[in-house]
Nucleic acid binder design. Structure first.
Length: 296
DNA sequence: AAAGCAAACAACCGCAATCTG
DNA sequence: TCAGATTGCGGTTGTTTGCTT
């Protein structure tokens, strides 16, 4: 019943890897490079499943891996990223050079999940079920209820239409009302040294809608983001809005709440409607006010 | 010293996403 | 376009290690 195994199990080694197996795998990958995991064991002469080889390489044998001694800074970053992203270990690991998703996951489950406030542990960490609950409790991965998440997409622009009492923000392209007139002024962006944008006014229009491009560099480390500030581009029509966004980001992104980036941390801005409501003094519903405009 | 227990961590498994022919 | 193959991710489990009694 069920799906067939990923590879034939007969005669394959399981359990801990030996030093010899490690050496064989490392040597093989040095020569042939990563990839082709399914056939790798046969070619390398290992009695292991391809998945097992991949895991062993990625988590332990790769030369650029740091292991153990997670620093307080890293720890803090893990906590914040987890609050932001939930149990998306690979994404979290991607922000911590040299750390693997498995290590971070283990570290979280054995150390951090016990320390973070109950509220968070329960809302975003299914594996926090480790608090005395049986291991067989197969909690599925559930995102924090207050985190909005989308498919990965390069989304950089948030449109705000103040004419719809601070809730007119746009819907995703698919759902945009036909009568919507995008008369926004356009705020251009000039990436600064942090890879962030420094919006500047390009064009104005009779409407006070505007477009802001956060343009976070895909390589931007969250550590940079946590302390980010927008430059408002001087006194202009949009200063107030800029300040609101700056306030939002420093209040919420900075603390890791109610905001999430896409899978590659590509330029994506997703604003939780409750948070936005609170600072826009609006009463929007999800989908009422937010648009992520795909730019690629 | 030994048994019991819990914590830590390495590895496995199933599923989903992505790739490829 | 689609089905099968492959890869990657995250939850779970098994084993080892260290502490306590």
């Amino acid at each position: 019943m069920g799906r067939s195994p990923c590879c034939a199990k007969e005669g394959l080694n399981k359990g801990a890897w030996t030093a010899l197996e490690d050496r064989v795998l490392s040597e093989y990958i040095k020569v042939h490079g990563e990839g082709g995991w399914r056939n790798l064991p046969k070619k390398a002469g290992l009695k292991r499943c391809g998945k097992s080889c991949r895991l062993r390489w990625l988590n332990y044998l790769r030369p650029d891996i740091k292991r153990g001694n997670i620093s307080p800074d890293e720890e803090e970053l893990i906590v914040r990223l987890h609050k932001l992203l939930g149990n998306r270990w690979s994404l979290i690991a991607g922000r911590l050079p040299g750390r693997t998703d498995n290590e971070i996951k283990n570290y979280w489950n054995t150390n951090l999940s016990k320390r973070v406030p109950d509220q968070e542990a329960h809302s975003s960490s299914p594996s926090s079920a480790g608090h005395g609950e049986p291991r067989s409790n197969k909690a599925k991965n559930v995102m924090s209820h207050n985190v909005v998440r989308t498919k990965a997409a390069k989304c950089t622009k948030v449109f705000i239409n103040p004419q719809l009492p601070r809730k007119g923000l746009l819907l995703a392209d698919d759902h945009k009302p036909e009568d919507y007139h995008r008369q926004q002024a356009v705020v251009d962006h000039q990436p600064d040294g942090n890879g962030l944008s420094s919006p500047s006014l390009l064009e104005n229009s009779s409407s006070s809608d505007f477009l802001m491009d956060f343009d976070m560099n895909s390589e931007l480390c969250l550590a940079n983001l946590l302390g980010l500030e927008f430059s408002s581009g001087g006194d202009n029509l949009f200063s107030e809005e800029m300040q609101l966004h700056q306030q939002y980001w420093s209040d919420n992104v900075g603390s890791g709440e109610d905001c999430v980036a896409d899978d590659q941390f590509q330029p994506t801005t997703i604003l939780n409607f409750q948070s936005l409501n609170s600072f826009l003094n609006a009463d929007a519903n999800q989908g009422d006010w937010l648009e992520l405009a795909e730019t690629s």
